[in-house]
Amino acid sequence: MDPILEVKNITKVYGEGVTAVVAVDSVTLTLNKYEVLLIMGPSGSGKTTLLSIMGCILRPTQGEVMLNGEVVSSLPEDSFPFIRKQYLGFVFQSFNLFPSLTAAENIEVVLRLKGLNRREIGLKALALLEKVGLAKRAHSYPKELSGGEQQRVAVARALAGDPSIILADEPTGNLDSKTGKEILELIRDFAEESGKAVVIVSHDPKAETLAHRIVFLEDGRLKG
């Protein structure tokens, strides 16, 4: 086992005093390279908070997040965007594509942030769209795409920066059963093909068959 992301004794508390809510309570979890990890649990169990902490979007109240063996949770806030850009790719439940940009341009945003030149950006964006089977829709705007197509573009965007880890928050939440399964397979296949680790937060039972490991979260704590 080769750990790429570790959370050690993570606690996240929102608010203070009598209004304090413990969203994640003393969670320790390791994500290994090439692994697809599924985090399941009921609504409000802290799954998304845990994913946000793993994705260096949220700072834990207590505990450590280690990426490639280095503690990143104690780094200054302004270093988090660089970590996200360099090592992490995100897939969101609501796709979160930029509505005024075409499918190709949505992918190009990440490549621009990575500092690639114009030629590389164009070629790579098209290659990624081809991978997700949407080369013909490169110039379509998100509103012209179906939910499944939008999520495919979102997966391509998540892969664009060549991250080590893909974090997906309820990636099938807004999709029908068949399309949801296709998206999960797409994420898993890409992860296996390019050697990426994946964390999926989902209630979707279909995800269980695709994950290498499943953990359950309840009231902010890992079960079992």
Partner: peptide
């Protein structure tokens, strides 16, 4: 705002 939030999440700095 949601798009700016997405940009931040995928690694854009405030200055971008």
């Amino acid at each position: 705002l949601r798009e700016y939030g997405t940009l931040k999440a995928i690694g854009a700095r405030n200055r971008d």
